[in-house]
Write a protein that binds this DNA or RNA. Structure first.
Length: 455
RNA sequence: UCCUCGGUAGCUCAGUCGGUAGAGCGGGUGGCUGUUAACCACCUUGUCGGCGGUUCGAAUCCGUCCCGGGGAGCCA
């Protein structure tokens, strides 16, 4: 096996005079009288490596001069200081091997900007563009940082099931799964009961939290909603910490620490990619994220939010009164106009929240929290869980839930119950927030939306 | 799912009153230059989203379906 130098390392170290071998894809080629400039990108970083290909190279006419965008090459050469502006170093090629051709008549990526809508149609080629490559690197680093944050704090990662037979109220419609050979009614063919793809790992995460203390999940989640928006997917990834001996305040603190940790990390670790987003995707992004990481999140209760909206002097399409769920226009007013930073809203009316959220002492609100961020809206949803057996059982009955299906969940309160809390952080919404990408379909490699799952 | 705006060349778009389709970019060929959104010349490009209807005639008008953007709901 050959070893190659990653262009990221090469551009960072600038090993002048050294002979190195790189491998990647041609972005563009420019010819001069005696030689050609070839821009090679290997995906390790945003920047391309400028390769100098002299016409005396053996395959200059037959190979090098036919190189176009998308061709794959291996280049061996000497690193030298670049005499021209635009790059510090360049690679003077001693040998250029064409590994794979890319017919320029049909290769869809051109050396110009493409719309994200078009790129979405070629999901198999779009990571070769600057923006989508940057998204992939940032996404990967964020995932790494999520694990780092929790592992540093002693959280245990739990792999909650993807196939599940329990719903999580308030989390949307489940995809039903089947082998296609029903034997005892719809959806009962394999597991003997209706099964589906998980809409949340929360209920199972609670099981492990009440054994291991602090746990988190980080996995795919599925919602069979007919949602057609820039912030919804049918398949997405979610991070769900669950902490035993923890109340809503502790929950809120962890969520805020997590988000700030992730922002600090990504700004340092992916500076070049973040600069691209700042310049071409969302002007002022880096400064905005720095400011978010550097100050406390705002916090108001639902009741305070309602009062603030009612006294705003605004007329909303949906009139505000205590008891309604906050609409997008309300959330956007609060985050984008009033607070201009992440806003935590807590203690929502019990009537609009799921059964597992803990009833507050006032009897009419629950210990819930949403974290809303400017431009995107809800990025985190969580709560302290109802740990009192009788209260939970009553809430489940009121919600019309079959208690027999959830005995195991009630048992957690029957045997050694403790106050506990957790939240769900939508990973793609996080990547959106960090990258400034307007549409969630651009921050997951292969988006699944109603009527769309090409590969 | 609802409201709204769109779908024309590989891409981004223009297309008048219903009269038979254009530009820029890309691609090809040649030229020039330590180039880098390269430059200059010439050449190349169509199921006008699908189906049906109105009409002598439809990219254009009507119906319907599909897909996309923006907004809403559902939520992360």
């Amino acid at each position: 096996m050959r070893t190659y130098t990653k262009i990221r390392q090469l551009l960072a170290r600038q090993p002048l005079g050294e002979t190195v071998r790189v491998a990647g894809w041609v972005r563009t080629r420019r010819d001069t009288g005696g030689f050609s400039f070839i821009e090679v990108n290997d995906g390790s970083c945003l920047g391309n490596l400028q390769v100098i290909a002299d016409k005396r190279l053996g395959n200059y006419e037959a190979g090098i001069k036919r190189l176009t965008a998308g061709c794959s090459v291996e280049v061996e050469g000497t690193v030298q200081e670049s005499p021209a502006r635009g790059q510090a170093v360049e690679l003077v090629a001693a040998e250029i091997k064409v590994v794979g051709w890319a017919d320029p008549e049909t290769y869809p990526l051109q050396k110009k900007r493409h719309s994200f809508e078009f790129l979405r149609e070629i999901a198999h080629l779009r990571p070769r563009t600057n923006a989508l490559g940057a998204v992939a690197r940032v996404r990967s680093r964020l995932a790494y940082a999520v694990h780092a944050f929790f592992q540093e704090r002693g959280f245990i990662q739990v792999h909650t099931p993807i196939i599940t037979t329990s719903d999580c109220e308030g989390a949307g419609e489940m995809f039903q799964i089947s082998t296609g050979q029903p034997s005892g009614g719809p959806g009962t063919d394999f597991f003997g009961r209706r099964a589906g793809l998980t809409v949340s790992g929360q209920l199972q995460a609670e099981v492990y939290a009440l054994a291991l203390g602090d746990v988190y999940t980080f996995g795919p989640t599925f919602r069979a909603e007919n949602s057609n928006t820039s912030r919804h997917l049918a398949e997405f990834w979610m991070i769900e910490p669950e902490m035993a001996f923890c109340d809503l305040a502790g929950n809120r603190r962890i969520a805020e620490e997590l988000l700030k940790y992730l922002l600090d990390d990504i700004l340092a670790a992916c500076a070049e990619d973040m600069e691209l987003f700042d310049r071409f995707i969302a002007k002022g992004l880096v400064e905005r994220l720095r400011s978010v990481a550097g100050q406390d999140f705002a916090h108001i209760t639902y009741t305070e939010a309602v009062e603030e909206l009612q006294h705003s002097g605004r007329t909303f399409d949906f009139p505000v009164r205590w008891g309604i769920d906050l609409q997008s226009e309300h959330e956007r007013y609060l985050t984008d106009e009033v607070y201009r930073r992440p806003l935590v809203v807590t203690d929502y009316p019990a009537a609009i929240k799921p059964f597992y959220m803990r009833i507050n002492d006032d009897g009419r609100t629950v210990a819930a929290m949403d974290i809303l961020v400017p431009g995107i809206g809800e990025i985190v949803g969580g709560s302290q869980r109802e740990e009192r057996y009788e209260v939970l059982e009553r809430r489940m009955q009121e919600a019309g839930i079959d208690l027999d299906d959830y005995r195991w969940y009630l048992d957690l309160r029957r045997y050694g119950t403790v106050p506990h809390a957790g939240f769900g952080l939508g990973f793609e919404r996080l990547v959106q927030f960090v990258s400034g990408m307007a549409n969630i379909r651009e921050v997951i490699p292969f988006p699944r939306t109603p009527g769309f799952a090409p590969c």
